[in-house]
Nucleic acid binder design. Structure first.
Lengths: 236, 236
DNA sequence: CGAGTAGTTTGCGTTAGCGCAAAACGAGGC
DNA sequence: GCCTCGTTTTGCGCTAACGCAAACTACTCG
C-alpha cells in the first residue's frame, strides 16, 4: 500500500491541533482508493463499514425516498470527510455516495474509530465541529426552502457551489465538476424543468454561461443580488 | 445554589458511559434556572456564552430571516441539550430559544466546555452522536420538504411531536405543550392558513381533536397512513 | 462516421397552495 | 359579566411552479 504524504492533509480541519506523529499514526490505519467518475462509493442503507476522506475529485451524497425520488444532500469537496455514519451512531449509511468525477479517497475501517478517538480526543472534537457546521448549513437550507422562491434558492445553491468548488476563469467562475439541471433541482427542491427555464433566463441576461453538465457564473455579483432580494421586489 | 440530583440525569445519552463521580463533577459546574412560559432563553445572533440542558418543560428553537420570517428548527424535550453553539464552533447562537412552557434548565458556561471535554472525552463523543442524529433528522426534513406535499409533511410533523412529547390519553395522544397553527406551519414550510384548513379537514374526519394551541391525535394510525401514502394515491 | 443515448429546452394546461380579508371563536383581565 | 386581544376558520382569486410531451442538442460508443 502506498504511503500517504502527511503534508498533503496536515492542514485539514479534521487534523487541527495534531502533532505530525499523531497524524502519521492515524494515516497508517487508512488505505486509499480511486473511484472513477459515476461509480458508487457506498449505497444508502448498506452496512456502514468505513469512513472516508476525499483527497481529489468530487463526491455527491444523495438520499432516496422509498418512492425513488432523490435529493442531493451535499457535494463533498477535497479535504472533507464523508460516510461518518459510525461516528454519529448509525449502523447504516443514510445516503448514497457517488463519485461525480474521478476521485481519490482515504478509507478507514469503522473499527479504527473508537481506538483513534480514544488516543486522539481532538479527532472527536474536530469531527464535532464539522458535523455541527453541516447541521447549521442544513438548517439554513430548510430556512431557504421555507421562505424563498425557486429562483432565489437556485441562486444561493450555485453561489455556494461556486464558493466551495469554483474555478476562477477570466470571464467568470466555473463550477469545477459535472453537474446537471437535475442535480441542481435535487439540491433546491424543484424540478429539472424549472431549473432549465431559470438558467435559460439567466443565460439570455448574460448572468451565466451553461451547457451540458457545465455552469459558469459570468456575473456572480448580479446573482448575489438575485439571491438576496426579498420576495416582493419585482422584476424590471 | 441548589444541588442537582444526579439520579435525575444519569440515564441521559449525554452522560452515557460516565461514572457517578464524573457526572457529579460535571454537574457541579452547572447552575439551574427557571424560565416562565413565553420567555426567551437566548436570542439568535447573541454571543453564545452558555449551553443548556432542559430538565422540565419545552423549548422552541427558531431561526429568523433578515426579512423577519421564522421557521421552527426543533422543539427541545426534557433531557435534551440545546444552545451548543460553542461545541460546534460558532461564536453566536444561530437560532432563538424560547420556553413554550414553564421550563427548568441546567446551564453551563461555555468556558467550562473545553475543560470538561478534556477531562471526559465521552462528553464529546456523546455530543457528536446527538448532533449527528440531529443532522440526519434535518436531512430527512429536507427530503420531505422536497418530495412531499403539505398534508403529508404536516402528518409527519405531528407524528414526530407525538412521539417526542406525546401524552397518552384514553382517547388519543395529546401533544404536551401549547402549539399553534402558525408553529406547525413554521415546522413544515407552509402557512397557518393551509395548516388550519388541513386540520379542519382531519377534524371532520375524526382523525384529530384540536383547539386553541392544543392538538390531540385521535387516530394516530390513520395519520400514519396519510403520512406514508405516495403523492399520486388520491382521496376517496 | 453514424446511431444511440443522455441531457436540455420549451410550450401548454393544470393545480396546490398562497395571500388577502373578514368573520367567528375563545381565554383571560378588569 | 363584559371587553379585548390573540387565535382560528373560511371564502375567493391568483400565480408560481409542476407535469407532461415533444423537439432539440451534443457526447459516446461501435
Amino acid at each position: 500500500m502506498a504511503k500517504v504524504d502527511t503534508s498533503l492533509v496536515a492542514h485539514l480541519p479534521l487534523f487541527a491541533g495534531m502533532t505530525p506523529d499523531a497524524l502519521d499514526e492515524i494515516l497508517r490505519e487508512a488505505r486509499s482508493a480511486r473511484y472513477p467518475r459515476n461509480s458508487a462509493i457506498f449505497e444508502q442503507g448498506a452496512d456502514a463499514q468505513c469512513f472516508f476522506l476525499l483527497l481529489h475529485g468530487h463526491v455527491r451524497a444523495a438520499k432516496t425516498t422509498p418512492a425513488g425520488e432523490q435529493i442531493v444532500v451535499r457535494y463533498v469537496a477535497p479535504g472533507e470527510t464523508f460516510g461518518l455514519a459510525m461516528a454519529i451512531g448509525a449502523a447504516r449509511y443514510p445516503a448514497t455516495a457517488m463519485a461525480v468525477d474521478d476521485s481519490v479517497v482515504l478509507i478507514w475501517p469503522n473499527s479504527a474509530w473508537p481506538r483513534l478517538v480514544e488516543r486522539f480526543p481532538a479527532l472527536a472534537a474536530n469531527t464535532l465541529q464539522t458535523v455541527g457546521t453541516r447541521l447549521q448549513e442544513s438548517h439554513t437550507r430548510i430556512l431557504e426552502m421555507s421562505t424563498q422562491q425557486v429562483e432565489q434558492r437556485i441562486a444561493h445553491a450555485l453561489l455556494r457551489l461556486a464558493k466551495q468548488s469554483g474555478k476562477k476563469l477570466d470571464h467568470g467562475i466555473e463550477i469545477d465538476f459535472p453537474i446537471s439541471r437535475q442535480d441542481i433541482a435535487q439540491m433546491t427542491g424543484t424540478t429539472l424543468h424549472t431549473v432549465s427555464r431559470i438558467l435559460s433566463g439567466w443565460e439570455s441576461q448574460g448572468l451565466v454561461e451553461s451547457g451540458r453538465q457545465r455552469i459558469i457564473l459570468r456575473e456572480p455579483h448580479k446573482i448575489v443580488v438575485l439571491a438576496e432580494r426579498s420576495a416582493d421586489s419585482g422584476a424590471a
